[in-house]
Amino acid sequence: MTGTDVELTSVAAVAENGVIGRDGEIPWPSIPTDKRQYRNRIADSPVILGRVTFDSMREDLPGTAQIVLSRSETGYDVETAYPASGVAEAIATVESLGAEEGYVIGGAGIYGLFQPAVDRMVLSRIPGEYEGDAYFPEWDTAEWSRVKTVAYDRFTLEEWERASS
């Protein structure tokens, strides 16, 4: 755990070469089954995301609340959106909402910032290598245990937990 009562989970779709995006979009053809499991997983919890990712999702915001990390924005015209300036403030906001878990949903900089703080990762592994400009952060596999793997058509879902110290 992160030293708080909130369990943080990173959720991402990742190609074999670590790519998660290109020009703000997913670089592989849409995988509806993956989108559904992703949306269902995060539907009843607050999500933590960067401002660019938030702006790209404004038409269909995920989660019960969006904690938006930004260096410049201090408020949003969306009732369920809360600004945060860093990891500690984002986690405190999740706690203040009475949630027991929160999901980190990107972009690349946000995944990197939260990697030391997350307790779990749920990764949709997309076969193939893709051109991209956004990557999921690397992690020390010795610090993590893969606890579940489920094969789907066109992706494999992996669940990882941080190893006990």
Results as ranks from 00 to 15, higher is better:
Thr9Leu: 04
Ser10His: 02
Ser10Pro: 00
Val14His: 07
Val19Arg: 15
Arg22His: 11
Gln37Leu: 11
Arg41Val: 01
Arg41Asp: 03
Ala43Leu: 05
Asp44Gly: 01
Pro46Phe: 01
Ile48Val: 15
Phe54Trp: 15
Ser56Met: 09
Ser56Asp: 07
Met57Glu: 05
Arg58Ser: 14
Arg58Phe: 10
Pro62Val: 02
Thr64Leu: 07
Gln66Asp: 11
Val68His: 08
Gly75His: 08
Val78Cys: 07
Tyr82Asn: 09
Pro83His: 08
Ala84Arg: 13
Ala88Lys: 12
Glu89Leu: 08
Ile91Glu: 12
Ala92Met: 14
Thr93Gly: 07
Gly98Val: 07
Gly98Arg: 09
Glu100Tyr: 06
Glu101Gly: 02
Gly102Thr: 13
Ile105Arg: 01
Ile105Trp: 05
Gly106Lys: 10
Gly106Tyr: 10
Gly107Phe: 15
Ala108Lys: 01
Ala108Pro: 09
Tyr111Ser: 15
Pro116Ala: 14
Val118Trp: 11
Val122Pro: 03
Leu123Ala: 11
Leu123Pro: 02
Leu123Gln: 10
Ser124Arg: 01
Arg125Cys: 05
Arg125Met: 03
Ile126His: 02
Ile126Phe: 11
Ile126Lys: 03
Asp133Asn: 12
Asp140His: 08
Ser145Tyr: 03
Arg146His: 07
Thr149Gln: 11
Asp153Gly: 00
Arg154His: 09
Leu157Trp: 05
Glu158His: 09
Glu158Arg: 00
Glu159Arg: 04
Glu159Asn: 06
Trp160Arg: 01
Trp160Val: 02
Glu161Tyr: 00
Ala163Thr: 12
Ser165Lys: 01
